[in-house]
Each structure stands twice: as structure tokens, then as C-alpha cells.
Simulated assay, not measured.
Amino acid sequence: MAFPESVSVALPCQRHLFEMPADICYLDAAAWSPLPRGVREAGEAGILVKSRPWDHPRAVVPAWAERARAAAARLIGAGADDIAIVGAVSHAMAVAAHNLTLRPGGRLLRVADEFPSLRFAFDRLAERQGLVVEEIPRPSDGDWTEAVAAAITRPGAAPLALATLTPLHWTDGSLIDLDRLAPLVHAAGAALVIDATQAVGAVPVSVARWRPDFLAFPTYKWTLGPYGLAFLYAAPHRQDGAAIEENVGNRPPAVGARRYDRGELYDPVALSMAVAGLELIAEWRVPAIAARLRGLTDRLADGVAAFGLTPMPAALRAPHILGLRPPAGMPTDLVGRLHQDKVFVSERSGALRISPHVWANDDDLTRCIAALRAACQGVI
């Protein structure tokens, strides 16, 4: 997957758009992002539609839904008719699983320690259709792409029926190169479902390149939007399926992926916030965001390597998430001690996950490295 190392115009730090005090070092966008002021203000304007409907008629809200749909589509190279608006990625994955009929005895392939939203619905699908679930173990060299490619093409294996993949592992940002893997899945005649939760808004995503049957992402992480809203891309040949909930809006004559829209779609708060966040990302341009975040995580990687926290090589990790796995295991309450220093990161499955976004600046990097050095002293 070719993530940009440079772009023609560098994206400067956008901290001034956030309500973030100078002494807060928030490097946890992979958990959820703070809201830019403009997104918060859009939500407050949306509240008026519900609190004062005589002044702000709800008739304006459907246009917000279509604007959100179009903005989400542009970020992944799709058309607006290819996008359903749903409540969560788990909702999207349930729709996908509900609309796949696969060959019994075939393999359902995924990586180990996958996020639950990408497991639960497909576990039920496997039980229902007689699939064999194959989880690829975490590779000792960190090269998920090579491990997944080997599993897809393994001689003598049962036919591949479905691959449920992500562009990177959610626990530590290790790269899963779909530019290489998607063609292998298609060559095997299998379906492809992608959870792009940890990608859209931070790195380039292209349904034209990957040709998934379904792809989903939420708004509350890298696209700087609200909680409780997500988008589902359905390929054209997957747009005549059955919704998992029936409502007036998603029945015929609903066009394209609108067939899968959630009920109570016209939320004036969430939709207006989603539009504000998605359009802000588009204004900055995702390649420029990715290049900026690569610079930040590379500098963090260099800084922590000096005291024994060795990250994966840059070629094996995504630009926007730095995962650190201490050789002797995670020190007790490391994340809690960092929080005391107002450095906010996450621990996921034995990895310290550091995930800056466009608000992060040089002071954040310095403070994070210093706090990690102090917290790890004598235990790594």
C-alpha cells in the first residue's frame, strides 16, 4: 500500500481548530478524536432543529443526509448511491454478513486478535453456512501482509470463500497491505469485506483499487465526527440485498446502497457534525494528512528507540499509528502513569498504541517521549 511520504503542500498543525489546552498531549485518535470547534458548532446548530422545530423545520435534514453520504463517498472513491448510512460499524458488518451466500466448506480468513465488530457477525455467518474460520497468527516478524498472502495462496487449503480484512491492525498500526492482498482474494474467487475504521480520514482508501463487496467506517475516530454514525459501502452487485431493519426510507424506491440505511436516519445533530468533519478532512486532503502523520510517528519512533522501545520498521506500519511492544511486556499501569502526566495514549492487546492526528505538534512529541522515558526507566 503506497502511503505518501511527501506531498506538494505540507499540512501544518491544526491545533488551533480544537479546544485543546496547551498542557494536554492527546495522542489517542485511534480510540476517538476530540471534535474541532466547527464540528461542535455544527452539532449545536443541529440541536436547535430538535429543540426549536418551529424555527428550524426538520425538512432541512434530508439534505444533510445526502451531503454526508456524498462526503463519505468522496473519501473512499465511491459514488453517493454506493453508501448507506448506519449506526455503527457493527451494524454495517451485520448487513454485510446478512447478504453473503458462500460455498459451504470454504474458508473465512481473518487475522488474529481482530476487532469484535469484524468477528461476531461473521462467526454467525460461518456457523450458518458451514464455513471454516481460519485466523492467521500474529507473525513473529510483524509482516502481516506476507502472512495473509501466504494463507490466501496456501497449497492444499480449502477454497477461500471470504476474507474479512482491515488496512492495518487496530491494536498497533501494523500494515495489512490491501493493494497487494485484495487482488489475491479476488483471484481466489472469494468475497472481500473491509473494516476501514482505522484508515478512512487518515490514509488513502480506494474502493476502486480494492473492489470490496462491502466496506465500512465510523465518524468518531479519524474523520473527527460524532459517535453513533457510520457509513457502509456496498459494491453495485451487492446493492439489491436485504436490510436487517426495514423502515420507510430504505424500502423501494430507495436507490443503491440506501437499501441498507438505518431507521431514524434524519438525526440533525449527528448528520450536521458528520458533514462538518468529513468536509474538513476533504479540505485538508487525505494524502497531506497521511504525510503529516507519518512525519509525527517516525519522529516518535526514533525518540523511543533510544531507550529500548523498538517499533516495527516504517515499511511494516501505517503512517498514523505507532505500536510499541516492550520486549519484557507492558510495564504495570504504564498508560495510567502517562495519563498522570497528561499524555493520553492507549494499551491494546499488549501494545502501547500512540495515534496522533492533525492537532499534534512538536511539544506533544517531546512530552510523550519524555513521559515514556520516565515511566519505563528501570523496567525496560
Rank of each mutant, 00 (worst) to 15 (best):
P4E: 02
V7K: 12
P12I: 06
C13R: 11
Q14W: 07
R15N: 05
L17Y: 08
F18K: 12
Y26I: 00
L27Y: 07
D28I: 06
A30D: 07
A31P: 00
S33N: 14
P36Q: 14
P36S: 14
A45P: 00
I47Q: 15
S51R: 15
H56V: 14
P57G: 14
V61C: 01
P62G: 11
A72Q: 04
R74N: 04
L75T: 04
A78V: 06
A78I: 01
G79K: 11
A84R: 01
R110Q: 10
A112D: 10
S117P: 00
F120A: 13
R124N: 04
V133C: 14
V133N: 03
I136E: 03
W144R: 04
T145G: 01
A149W: 01
A150C: 13
A150F: 01
A150P: 02
A151T: 05
I152L: 12
T153N: 13
G156F: 12
A158Y: 08
A158N: 08
A158E: 14
A161P: 12
L165K: 02
H169N: 10
H169R: 13
T171M: 14
D172W: 09
S174K: 10
L175W: 06
L175C: 12
I176L: 09
I176E: 00
L178D: 01
L181A: 00
H186A: 11
H186D: 00
A187V: 08
V193S: 01
D195C: 10
V200H: 03
G201V: 06
V203M: 13
V203N: 00
P204Y: 14
P204T: 08
V207A: 02
A208F: 06
A208Y: 05
W210M: 03
P218D: 00
P218E: 01
T219I: 07
Y220Q: 11
Y220M: 11
Y220D: 03
W222S: 09
T223S: 11
P236Y: 10
H237M: 03
R238Q: 02
Q239E: 09
Q239L: 11
G241F: 13
A242L: 14
R258M: 11
Y260C: 08
Y260R: 11
R262G: 01
G263Y: 01
Y266W: 12
D267H: 10
A270M: 09
L280T: 15
V286M: 02
R292A: 07
L293P: 00
L293T: 00
L296M: 09
L300K: 04
D302M: 05
G303S: 07
G303T: 05
V304A: 07
A306W: 01
G308N: 08
R317H: 11
P319K: 03
P319S: 04
P319G: 04
P319E: 04
L322V: 05
L324W: 07
R325Q: 15
V335A: 12
L338F: 11
Q340W: 13
Q340A: 15
S346M: 14
E347A: 15
S349L: 15
S355R: 08
H357M: 13
W359C: 06
W359K: 13
D362N: 13
L365M: 09
A370D: 09
A374F: 12
A375S: 13
I380T: 11
